[in-house]
Design a protein around this nucleic acid. Structure first.
Length: 462
RNA sequence: UCCGGCGUAGCGCAGUGGUAGCGCAGUUGGCUGUUAACCAAUUGGUCGCAGGUUCGAAUCCUGCCGCCGGAGCCA
């Protein structure tokens, strides 16, 4: 007999069928009425399957009565309407086969609640909890919907490299990739390490962004996106940062900042709507146990247009808010976390797109505006989570780009490919980067980003 | 990296200078179509690590390690 997943069994409308289920025991309750209740979960959905194990089973005394949380079982029997309240159907077992026992005391996940801090020390076992099962399913759906959204709009999925020789992009500290012996690397006459003898014949690192490669493909194929792991070696110790995270980076040719912002909004609203439609049971769990109100918030944001204002307007709004900020807002300074929280959390109470930042506080590749002091950049700010998207229209004018690189102190020779895109058939183009884990955080209400990725990588955590 | 808080039983916590405690889990027994099950008994400790003050330190002091929250950097 083939096994049927619990999600399918619980959705069954006809009872009486002979079925096989398999999963991990969450709890066991014994009745003196001649049977035990087993709560079995197989990860296919949040809910457990209630199994009725009668004492007439040949292994009842020896095995069933000694089943503890974490044990794995295969159960065969009749799917029946439940006598008790609390579940529609239950499985009346004719056979319970114990695949793997789970010694109590030694198994860290008992019946009692275990908090997220503790669970973080058990990355191999935490997917067996309600929270992390739900997280894995929501994360999966969001990833699938990202591909669906772009595919439906004719964007090509491009695989940009994880290992790159693009250095000093200014996006952050990079992890070095090397096969040199750290104790005695080859050295140049001046004593510095000779990376010419390294595996790639030059310095190489893990990517901090697929944007540069993405631009090249957009400037040939039109609309593309990347979705892959990204690495930052910054010593960031916050609930919003990881050393290894997943980033979505669409790039559009023949597009300006307005197109970029419109794409970002359509993208996020599609994802909010999709996760609501497909993850109702799991979102309900987050709403009850993690962050009350998270579902209502998603429903509101899936329906309403985003706020939209320029950096200059944002600063004026902050200055005249009458609010006492720890850091007084002023034109030319980057927006502080408290400013972003005020804009997204209080003024707009939802996502806000802030555009046209001062040139001095943004990256060299962002397109210079006609006012001569701002660039066509945008950030999408969410309540609670803060910046979830950073993007821009790219500078497509060769001379203007070279000038920006000089001002940023970057050597144009280090970016021959990037400059070639402006030299040969240059076109206006724009794109953005979305932090996937921050999206999952926002959709689930999870407080710490380390809890929305299966195996978090952060300083002192690997 | 900076600021603040925390580190005591498997888990969650109390204990602020004088015999190391409670709840949950576990074990045993009782009860029950149960579902955060319930009732009774019971097992379980290098008080993060190192040093110092003191007759005496979980408690006070110093250093280190780890974790959490906030800030910075960003997605």
């Amino acid at each position: 007999m083939r096994r049927t997943k619990v999600a399918e069994l619980l959705g069954a409308t006809v009872c009486g069928a002979e079925v096989r289920a398999a999963g991990w025991v969450r709890t066991r309750r014994d009745s003196k009425g001649g049977f035990s209740f087993l709560e079995v979960n197989d990860g296919s959905c949040l809910a457990n399957l209630q199994v009725i194990a009668p004492d007439t089973l040949p292994n009842y005394g020896d095995e069933v009565l000694h089943l503890h949380p974490g044990a794995s079982v295969v159960v065969e029997g009749e799917l029946a309407q439940s006598v008790g309240s609390g579940q529609a159907v239950e499985l009346k077992a004719r056979a319970v086969r114990v695949l793997g026992g789970s010694p109590p005391v030694e198994y860290p996940l008992g019946k009692q609640k275990v908090n997220f801090d503790r669970l973080r020390e058990l990355p191999h076992l935490r997917p067996r909890t309600n929270s992390f099962g739900a997280l894995a399913r929501v994360r999966h759906v969001l990833a699938q919907e990202i591909h669906r959204f772009f595919d439906a709009r004719g964007f090509l999925y491009v695989h940009t490299p994880v290992i790159t020789a693009n250095d000093c992009e200014g996006a952050g500290e990079m992890f070095r990739v090397t096969t040199l012996d750290p104790h005695s690397p080859p050295r140049l006459p001046d004593g510095t390490v000779d990376f010419g003898q390294d595996f790639f014949g030059r310095r190489a690192s893990l990517t901090v962004s697929g944007q540069l490669e993405g631009e090249a493909y957009a400037c040939a194929l039109g609309d593309i996106y990347t979705f892959g792991p990204t690495f930052r070696a910054e010593n960031s110790n916050t609930r919003r940062h990881l050393s290894e995270f997943w980033m979505v980076e669409p790039e559009m040719a023949f597009a300006d900042l307005d197109d970029d912002a419109a794409l970002a909004e359509a993208f996020l609203r599609h994802l909010f709507g999709a996760v609501l439609a497909r993850c109702g049971e799991d979102l309900g769990f987050f709403d009850r146990r993690v962050q009350p109100g998270v579902v209502a918030r998603l429903e509101r944001l899936a329906a309403a247009p985003f706020g939209r204002l320029t950096y200059t307007e944002a600063v004026r709004l902050l200055e005249t808010s009458g609010r006492a900020f720890e850091y007084a807002p002023s034109w030319g300074m980057d927006l502080q976390s408290e400013h972003e929280r005020y804009l997204a959390g209080e003024v707009f109470q939802g996502p806000v797109v802030v555009t046209d930042y001062p040139e001095a506080i943004k990256a060299f590749y962002m397109r210079r505006n006609d006012d001569g002091r701002t660039v066509a950049a945008m950030d999408v700010l969410l309540p609670e989570v803060g910046e979830i998207i950073g993007g821009s229209q790219r500078e497509e004018r060769l001379e203007v780009l070279l000038e920006a690189m000089r001002r940023a102190g970057l050597a144009p020779e280090a970016y021959p490919h990037y400059l070639d895109l402006r030299r040969f058939g240059s076109v206006p183009h724009a794109g953005f980067g979305l932090g996937f884990e921050r999206l999952v955080q926002f959709c689930t209400g999870m407080n710490n980003i380390r809890d929305v990725i299966p195996y978090p990588r952060a300083p002192r955590l690997c």
